[in-house]
Amino acid sequence: MQERVLYLRVGCLLCSMSDANISNFTNPSTFILLGIPGLEAAHVWISIPFCTMYAMAILGNFTILFIVKTEPSLHEPMYYFLCMLAVTDLVLSTSILPKTLSIFWFSSREIDFSACLTQLFFIHTFLAVESGIFVAMALDRYVAICDPLRHSTILTNHVVTKIGLAVLLRSSLLVFPYPFVARQWPYCRSNIIAHTYCEHIAVVKLACADIRVSSYYGLFVTFCVISLDVFFISVSYTQILRTIFSLPTKDTRLKTFGTCGSHFCVILAFYIPGLFSFFTQRFGQNVPLHFHILFANLYLLVPPMLNPIIYGVRTKQIRNRLLRVFTHKWI
């Protein structure tokens, strides 16, 4: 009888200790980012291409901003939207890579809970901003090609500013519930995130609660942003192509199509990897975790690196201005 009482007391003590640990962990002060599980030995080697892409993204996007600022002939809606895209790419790549490199180089895996939610907010907000800017750029090309005589009166500097603010406001309002709801969940399972940065689903999966609200809302935001934006871009380019094919000569058609060719390329570079990453994360249970994390990082690094290269190569005005800068320096 005494032994039974002793066992009950020990059991109750262990239960109370366990409950205390769970209650203390309900609001973790830090999360632990693992980096790329399974490829820890290759972290230093992986950091080399990551760092190279980041450096190219920084250099390329600052170059775009410098060229547009210093060249008065580029002070047009198309190039203002391009500057917005460059700033967005700089924010996106800078939101993830410094912390990722600190994990790879110094094994600095801890991230403050509030800093994790802030990173989460910036990543998802500016992904939505980038999508919105592509819609704005499609609108600009639509007006420039389908109604060129009214382009300067429709897309004034004031209207361009309003469009940019509307895109930012839409994205911020849609993404704001992500960190707000994530902060409310109790975290009593683990504070270890198998990722290089604080991605929304990767964070809320650690909650010991029913996270269907976060999951469904994430799907809703994806539908609102990606589906609607792709729809508007498709409608714009359908009208653009109809106008191009109605032009009288082949040379005119090729020249007109060339003005929106670079925009079409960066759209493909953004949406195709994005959709692939989204579907593998939600439904690709058989996809290796390290592949998903690598692809999720490349998705946020490759477009910021490629966008200034595509526009620099395919846009004659930017290419000529860049050549003049280098020619002047060498002379």
Rank of each mutant, 00 (worst) to 15 (best):
C188A: 13
S29A: 15
M56A: 14
V230S: 12
P303M: 01
P49R: 07
C83Q: 12
T63W: 07
V160T: 14
Y311D: 00
N297G: 10
V325E: 02
V159P: 00
C188V: 11
G312T: 05
L206A: 05
S108E: 13
Y311T: 00
S47K: 05
L139N: 07
I293E: 09
F176S: 13
S172F: 12
L120R: 04
V235K: 08
T252Q: 10
L301K: 09
S215L: 15
P77T: 06
S262G: 02
V287R: 04
N24F: 13
F270D: 05
N320R: 14
R212A: 09
W105R: 04
K255T: 12
R109N: 13
S190K: 03
A115N: 10
L74P: 02
S18T: 11
F104A: 00
P288E: 00
R242N: 06
D251Q: 13
S215T: 10
L219G: 15
K255L: 14
G261C: 11
L247F: 00
V10C: 09
Q317F: 05
G164Y: 03
Y178E: 02
P248E: 11
H292D: 12
A57T: 06
Q317Y: 11
I133A: 03
I36Q: 07
I46E: 09
D112F: 13
V129A: 01
T94E: 11
T30S: 12
G284D: 01
F257P: 01
S277R: 04
D210I: 01
Y54M: 05
A41G: 04
Q119K: 01
A202L: 02
S73Y: 09
T125F: 04
V287W: 01
C208V: 05
K255V: 08
